[in-house]
Nucleic acid binder design. Sequence first.
DNA 1: GACATGAACCGC
DNA 2: AAGCGCGGTTCATGTC
Length: 500
Amino acid sequence: MLAALGEFLADPARPKIVHDPKLFALLAGPIRGISHATMLYSYLARPTSPQHDLPAVVLRHLNATLSGAPGERADQLQRLVALLRSEVEAQELAAAYEQVDAPLAKVLGEMERHGIRVDPAALAAMSLTMESEIRALERRIWELAGTEFNVNSSQQLAEILFDKMNLGTAAKRSRARARSTAVDVLTELGLVHELPRRVLEFREIAKLKSTYVDALPKLIDPHSGRLHTRLSQTVAATGRLSSSDPNLQNIPVRTELGRQIRAAFIAEPGWTLLSADYSQIELRVMAHFSEDPVLLEAFRSGQDIHSRTAQEVFGVGPIGQTAEHRRAAKVINFGIIYGLSPFGLAQNLGIDQKEAARFIAAYFERYSGVKRYLDRTLEEVRRTGFTRTLLGRRRPIPEITSPQFNLRNLAERTALNTPLQGTAADIIKLAMIAIHRQLDEQKLRSRMILQVHDELLFEVPPEELDRLRAIVRDAMENVYALRVPLVVDIKVGPNWRDME
DNA sequence: GACATGAACCGC
DNA sequence: AAGCGCGGTTCATGTC
Ligand SMILES: Nc1nc2c(ncn2[C@H]2C[C@H](O)[C@@H](COP(=O)(O)OP(=O)(O)OP(=O)(O)O)O2)c(=O)[nH]1
Ligand SMILES: [Mn+2]
Ligand SMILES: [Mn+2]
């Protein structure tokens, strides 16, 4: 009986309807011949809907609830296919389904099942020292405050800072009227008092300890000895993947302590990690869409726009630039092309709004084709009500004609970002499918284990290192011919921190 | 105990 | 009145 089912599932000539195709790759062994995956149809047709599980989709489209009766799911799946497949075709989403999301599901299932190795002993050692540092900082903070309170409570902290100690004159408030104790506020107050400086130290250590150092080891699967994230294909409205339980797309990288956590992600003994990250990916996509001559020429001649901006803003040449400079430059570059206001830039750089406005104006004078592209995009989305990516992924943005100022402005910035972020997602998804096929066809032992938006992480045995490097570079750089080259930075190392 | 919300902060 | 985008997790707080 089970054997017969396995045969049926593995036979590509016998078309099958499923809801979540990844589940089969994950649990049911080999499956071929999935003709329709209703979860992916639902997502492609309504990428901003928060729910694409079967009960939600059945409710939305069939106005029915699932009772659990035998055969009911199969019955409803057939009804759903009739509705959703034609909607996908009508909205010209079939290519995105056929070429991208459907073949990707199996790849994601295998990545989840394979997992990644982490060093629990290293994290356990970190936890101990971090605990004592947190306790010491807490005592010092209480001493400076003259009273004991929960340092983790931003509300209690605000009372200490603003009521008891009378620090800060102009208090920033949120929608809920709470006084902010966010990092920029505390940094400012830190100029005149030790307490906020200590709170910042406390926050960094406490955050990393609770979110990573203590959480990750608990999630190691005792069976595989590895960490298995969930890679969601129907969550991000732009077409990106998301990662949860645990999120492995936000492993720390910025601070020294954070990088120590990153170093706990390791390869099997004797094996190596290989990371491949697209260079300036969304700026390259921008060059392609906008055809801005300056940006096109920059990428065709191998220039680095992030580095250029870092040079301009911080006055440091390429040699003197740190990772922090580069990250700050990214925030400026992406901020400006996605609608950053003079207010926001001024806030970010600690300059006045006039100067920030001049910087943005000069930016769009240099890249005037970018400015024209952004204006065109807004006009088009106002007219059509949706955006589209390179491979046809579609996102409705009806709020773009809202009479409400806030909603409309948010919609405009969303409209500027989605085609580019979504196209970058399309591109790396195509590369993942191609690489997975290569690994399979060439019967390699190397495994793709993570995707971090524009980065792929592999675990590779030493004898395959050179071959894998070539496969990955070729697939990622040539997966789609844009008007500018796609360039990938490849690094290898024993762990996710020490790579070159 | 489960759940929802807001603030804060990790990454791309 | 609010002022790059896309995510996920933790903790405090409040409710049931
Ligand atoms: N809107 C926005 N998008 C971002 C931000 N940070 C990263 N992204 C998006 C755009 C990037 O091209 C993409 C990949 O992030 P990376 O950190 O790899 O940066 P990027 O590829 O641009 O530069 P790189 O050459 O890899 O250092 O993610 C940000 O702060 N704002
Ligand atoms: Mn990159
Ligand atoms: Mn990256």
